[in-house]
Amino acid sequence: MNSGFTLWLFFVSMGASALGGMLGMASGIFIVPILILFGHVEIHTAIGASLISVIACSCGGVAPYLKGRLTNIRLAIVLEVATTLGAITGVLLSGIIPVVYLFFLFAAILFLSAQQMLAKRGDPVIATGVVPSGWGTTLHLHSSYPDVKQKQEIPYHVQRVPMGMMLMYGAGLISALLGIGIGVLKIPAMDTALRLPIKVSSATSNFMIGVTAAASAGAYFMRGTIIPSVAGPVALGSVLGAVIGAHILMRTSNAKLRLFFVVVLVLLGIQMLLQALGIHWRVG
């Protein structure tokens, strides 16, 4: 281990996390492919390191959402039962699944993220006159959040909790297998199944991902696949990058930034596919 590589890991993670933070994205989806493709880090080591940075960015970034009362912590703890179970399933599978399939899966997730980045998200239309029922009511999950612009409380209902939990189980599984956050699967689960307002959905999933990643990171830590000389600089770089990203969030054109991300995601996806197919690309 040399200090040049430590610094490279630190600055690359900081850059990826700062860019990701500008769009409110978890950086794991960039960090894992970059570590593998450019740093020639072994895939399981890259996944372990990325999981720590996922925890770090989740824990370090939740305070403003909690204080702004955007996080639904009751819903979070209910869904965490599913995400952590999914994470442990992912850990068990990661020991069995051949590395080639991990590359294919990663490429698929990268393409899916690119596609979702192009699509527009809107708040779910709230059906009036519908009497809320089901798990959301029994567990008192319905809530409200303060809207700063309109200066009022906006109530919302949590719907289809069992379906949301099934999707969250899958999200936890993929998160543990690939060492990434659950941004990609959060959208179908939280927007489509649970029908949460976007702000609540983002805040709640950001709150949950820390515990989800801790479930798999705990297992990988015990297994010995979290290498401190890699995970240390990656985690520290990501934390600082997230802070920087949050500060430059307002200053860039969102549409241009989005397009840039779509291109980066597609390029990384293609590289991961080539890697899976055994075609090694010499960079630089």
């Binding site: 770090a56 824990c59 370090g60 939740v62 305070a63 909690l66 639904n72 409200s144 109530p155 985690a235």
Partner: peptide, 28 residues
């Protein structure tokens, strides 16, 4: 009208914000 404070826990929310914020700084 549903009870709007149903799933809000102001004390718990600020406690968690505090712990996670300072815990992250300590670990970093």
């Amino acid at each position: 009208m549903m009870n709007q404070s149903d799933s809000n826990h102001p004390y718990l929310e600020s406690l968690l914000a505090y712990v996670l914020q300072y815990g992250s700084w300590a670990a970093s």
